[in-house]
Amino acid sequence: MIRNLLRAELMRLFGRRFVQIMTVLLLGACVIAVLSTVASSHTPTDAELRQAAGDAAAQFTDMQRYYETCVAAQGPQGECPRPDPAQYRMENYLTGVFVFANEITGLFYFVAVFLALFGFLVGASFIGAEMTSGGLTNLLLWQPQRPVVLGAKLLTAVVSVGALAVLVIAGYLGAFWGVASVSGLAGDLSGPFWPDLFAVVARAIAFVLGFTVLGFSIAVIGRHTAAALGTVAAYAVLWEVGLRIVLDTVDAVRPDRWMFSTYLVAFLDGSIEFYDGWSNCGMYADCASTYTVTWVHGALAGGVVVLVAAASAFVLTQRRDMA
């Protein structure tokens, strides 16, 4: 019975016009991102490569000289920035050339956010439209166990969005690797590059799935797709903007830690650092004048929000009358 339900939900999900349109938009956005990169990149000529290598070496030499001068003046304990050779690589001095290692993470955030929006909207509309139209009531006349019906829908949405996200991410990264191979450079792929990229990808998939569950759950709680959109809009205006202004006005301690967006960015990016105006550090004091929110904090905050929303959706669905 459950398998039948999941099969039917899968057919229903991909049979929905909204999902089809959103999928086309998602793929379209990815294609545009890739094509615009293709259009703005070219294979560097030997002359460009030589010029970039020369610029990198000259810059590194200048910085090394500055460092040595600084150390001579301040001693080994002075605050003299030692130049990192990795920063002075030839590909960093090329213009109009796509360098995979340098740019893929930033480009990937774009598709991760787009996928999260896709998951949120698809999750919300998948259940919201059925609640509004009476489709859910129809289904309950076939399978009266509400948690089973809701769970099947949520599972369908999460698995489908997750599978689509994996395919889109693989295609997206593959396309940019192709661009780099054909009309750009791969860049420095050594060291932690691939582990870091895979960690970002893994967190991005969790990010997308979290938003899918969140959109679905808020739509269930509000019995309408618009409830999910309205909640996000209301939160953004009242909390992220309104409360931020209030906290700034009253000089609150570490105001960013009260913002959900902080945790989202930290989760996706790995960490985010904020200036801590209340750290009582003097300008040259040996203590941290910043504080960091890591992806672990983000996972905890996001996980709690998603779990509370999902649990509320299931409890309310079990308790209340169906329209």
Partner: peptide
């Protein structure tokens, strides 16, 4: 068909 599939 969707309903029939869901209901086996």
């Amino acid at each position: 068909t969707l309903l029939a599939t869901a209901g086996g």
